[in-house]
Design a binder for these strands. Structure first.
Length: 480
RNA sequence: UCCUCCUUAGCUCAGUUGGUUAGAGCACAUGACUGUUAAUCAUGGGGUCCUUGGUUCAAGUCCAAGAGGGGGAGCCA
């Protein structure tokens, strides 16, 4: 007899039929005459209730049916006599597939703190919250591919190990096979990489963008979706040392088309989850609501999770230049009252979190796309505007998350790009292959990077980025 | 990396001004109970009070250093 998944049983129940369920025990309760076992197999957030009559199953035979154990139940699906569920499985035989000693199994049928669950990351997907989060994570990945596929983009696997040390996106993890106890040095006393695996210094990628641009110059519209590594000592609820990033890169797109794509993309992804993950989202929305109750009045979110997602999907994002943002901030109440830790004084300084949060959460109360930033605070490859002071950069800012997308139109003019490379002190010869795209058949093009986990935070309503990736990598933590 | 708060039973937490044998709820074990919904009720077992050092007649409580964690900031996605 083949097993039936719980999702299939509950979504399309056929009563009085014999079925086989294989799943993990969430709780068992009962009395002298009957036992109730709540079972979950991960196919859905919902449990199925197994009814084990004492006439068929002695207490002894159910001794090992404890929270966390894996069992196989053969029985008949019946309309439930109880109130909490419409159908239940009347057990005819129960086989213990794997015991879980209740004295030592750490997950209990009660609410655990996220901090505790993080310490048992190997077991936390068996909890309701994390199973919901990770089913959504799968659906969201699928939606990313679906969106780009439907638009004719090609998925490009850019390398995870790169020898390019000029990307400037952040601190890098070095990849080496050299014996760290006997590092070879040259005459000048510098590390000799000739005998290293690649014959030169190599690192884990901090971005697939530069390689992505090469393929956009050939296939037109491409995207990458892969792991990204930053060795920054960042200890926040929004940063990981290993995270997943989606980076589309499009030939012939200028900044306005780039912004429009970013907005369409985010709305598509949110819609997809709203339409395809209803049960999991409902659970997370309830959870979100309870978390909000524990917060102080002034820190509570104005909208519930579903309301917030609905709002973002159905409202236009505000598009605003850096210069306009500075004007708004200069005239804002908190700036005049001295409530900003970093007061807005002059044009040209980078915006702090508090400024972005004011614009998004207080002033506009919706997602904001800021564009045309001062060139000094942005990367070398961004398109220089005719004013000679700004670049065609854009940041998409989300409430509660901050920067969720960073992107730009790229500088396609060889002279301007090479001038900027020298200005910021990057060695030009290391980027010869990148500069070749500007030498041979250059064209206007654009792209952006979306932090996958940051979007997960927004969609699931979780508050720590470590809780939306299966095994978080952060400074001082690479367990599991 | 900086600021700040926290660390007491398997989990969540209380522990007053330093003072006898450190508590509660849940979990677990045993028993009761005719359909439960994180079942309920009774009884019971369970402690490196994060670590090290110091002050004191006396430290879970005060001081110092270290470790781990939360929140905020910086860097960014």
């Amino acid at each position: 007899m083949t097993r039936t998944k719980i999702a299939a049983i509950l979504h399309n129940p056929t009563l009085n039929q014999q079925i086989l369920v294989k799943a993990w025990v969430r709780t068992k309760r009962g009395n002298k005459n009957v036992n109730f076992i709540a079972l979950n197999d991960g196919s859905t957030i919902e449990n199925i209730q197994v009814v084990a009559e004492s006439s068929l199953f002695s207490d002894e035979s159910l001794k090992d049916v404890t929270t966390g154990a894996c069992i196989a139940v053969k029985g008949t699906l019946k309309a439930s006599q109880g109130a909490g569920q419409s159908v239940e499985l009347e057990a005819e035989s129960i086989e213990i597939l794997g015991k879980a000693d209740p004295e030592t199994y750490p997950l209990q049928p009660k609410k655990h703190s996220l901090e505790f669950l993080r310490e048992i990351a190997h077991l936390r997907p068996r909890s309701s919250t994390f199973s919901a989060v990770f089913r959504i994570r799968h659906q969201l990945s699928y939606a990313v591919h679906t969106f780009f596929h439907q638009k004719g983009f090609s998925y490009i696997h850019t390398p995870i190990i790169t020898a390019s040390d000029a990307e400037g996106a952040g601190e890098m993890f070095q990849v080496t096979t050299l014996d760290l106890n006997k590092i070879p040095k040259d005459e000048a006393g510098k590390i000799d990489f000739k005998n290293d695996f690649f014959g030169r210094q190599a690192n884990l990628t901090v971005s697939g963008q530069l390689e992505g641009e090469l393929f956009a110059m050939a296939l037109g519209e491409i995207y990458t979706f892969g792991p990204t590594f930053r060795a920054e000592n960042s200890n926040t609820a929004r940063h990981l040392a290993e995270f997943w990033m989606i980076e589309p890169e499009m030939a012939f797109y200028e900044l306005p088309e780039n912004m429009a794509l970013a907005e369409e993309f985010l709305k598509y992804l949110i819609s997809y989850i709203l339409e395809n993950c209803k049960a999991d989202l409902d659970f997370l929305a309830k959870r979100f609501e309870e978390e909000e109750k524990n917060k102080k009045q002034e820190e509570r979110a104005e909208m519930g999770l579903l309301e917030k997602l609905e709002f973002v999907r159905s409202n236009d994002f505000v598009k605003l230049t850096y210069t306009e943002a500075i004007e708004i901030l200069k005239d804002s109440k908190p700036n005049k009252k001295g409530q900003f830790k970093y007061p807005i004084e002059k044009w040209g300084s980078d915006l702090q979190s508090e400024h972005e949060r004011f614009l998004v959460e207080k002033h506009f109360k919706k997602p904001v796309i800021l564009y045309n930033y001062p060139k000094e605070i942005k990367a070398f490859y961004m398109k220089q505007n005719p004013d000679n002071t700004t670049v065609a950069a854009m940041d998409v800012l989300f409430p509660g998350i901050g920067e969720i997308i960073g992107g730009s139109q790229r500088e396609e003019n060889l002279e301007k790009l090479s001038h900027r490379i020298k200005e910021v002190g990057i060695e030009e010869h290391a980027l010869w292959w990148y500069l070749d795209t500007r030498k041979f058949g250059a064209c206007p093009h654009s792209g952006f990077g979306l932090g996958f986990e940051r979007l997960m935070l927004f969609i699931t309503g979780m508050s720590n980025i470590r809780d939306v990736i299966p095994f978080p990598r952060t400074p001082q933590n690479a367990d599991f």
